[in-house]
C-alpha cells in the first residue's frame, strides 16, 4: 500500500496544560535544534479555531500539533514527506517521531508533573483519501500493519482496533490496549 501521508495521535491523561503554552516551547525547540531528525521551520498558533490544529510546530518532514479535542489535549504528528520502507516500517517511523516528541514535552521544565500522555491508546489516521480511503476494506488492509505496530509497542497482543470515523472524515483507527498499565 502506497500510504505516505498519515497522522498519529496521542491524548494526554489530564488537561492541565493549555495548547497556547506550547508556543514558546516550540520556539525554543527550533532555537535549540531539539528534534534531530526533523527540519523545524516555524510555530503557528491556531488556538482561535475550535477543533483546529491548536499550536503547530511546522517541520519539513511532518507537523506536530497540540490541540484540545473533546475536552482533552492531544498531540498529533502529521507526516508529510516520503518515508522509506514497508507500511509497517513507515508507521513505525512516524510513531517513533510522535513518541519522541511526547517524551520531550513531558520533560519540559514548564510541564513537569503537569503533562503526561496516555500510552494505552493511540490513533492512526490516513491522510490520503486516494490510497487509503475511509472504507471497511481499507481498514482491513491497514489492520496487519497496525497490529504489528501495536504488538511491538504494547509488548503484548491484547488490544483492539476500532474505526468509527464519519463518512466524510478520513479513515481513523483507534488502537487501544486492553491491559492497563
Amino acid at each position: 500500500m502506497e500510504l505516505q501521508r498519515l497522522s498519529i495521535k496521542l491524548f494526554s491523561e489530564s488537561t492541565n496544560v493549555k495548547p497556547p503554552e506550547f508556543v514558546p516551547v516550540f520556539h525554543a525547540w527550533i532555537r535549540n535544534q531539539k528534534l534531530k531528525d526533523h527540519l523545524m521551520i516555524d510555530v503557528s498558533d491556531y488556538n482561535h479555531v475550535p477543533d483546529g490544529p491548536g499550536t503547530l510546530l511546522v517541520t519539513h518532514e511532518g507537523n506536530f500539533s497540540l490541540a484540545l479535542a473533546e475536552g482533552k489535549l492531544s498531540l498529533l504528528y502529521q507526516r508529510k514527506r516520503f518515508l522509506e520502507g514497508t507500511l509497517t516500517e513507515r508507521l513505525n517511523t512516524a510513531f517513533k517521531a510522535l513518541l519522541n516528541a511526547s517524551e520531550l514535552l513531558e520533560q519540559e521544565p514548564d510541564f513537569r508533573n503537569r503533562l503526561s500522555f496516555d500510552r494505552n491508546s493511540f490513533w492512526v489516521i490516513s491522510n490520503d483519501r486516494l490510497n487509503l480511503p475511509n472504507t471497511d476494506q481499507s481498514f482491513e488492509e491497514l489492520r496487519p500493519a497496525l497490529s504489528e505496530l501495536a504488538t511491538e509497542f504494547f509488548g503484548h497482543d491484547h488490544f483492539s482496533l476500532n474505526c468509527n470515523s464519519g463518512e466524510k472524515e478520513r479513515l481513523s483507527v483507534m488502537v487501544e490496549s486492553s491491559v492497563l498499565n
Partner: peptide
C-alpha cells in the same frame, strides 16, 4: 467546501 476541507487536512494544516 467538502473538497476544500479534504485538501486542507491532507496537504496543509487543516485550516
Amino acid at each position: 467546501l467538502d473538497v476544500l476541507a479534504e485538501v486542507a487536512e491532507e496537504y496543509s494544516n487543516g485550516i
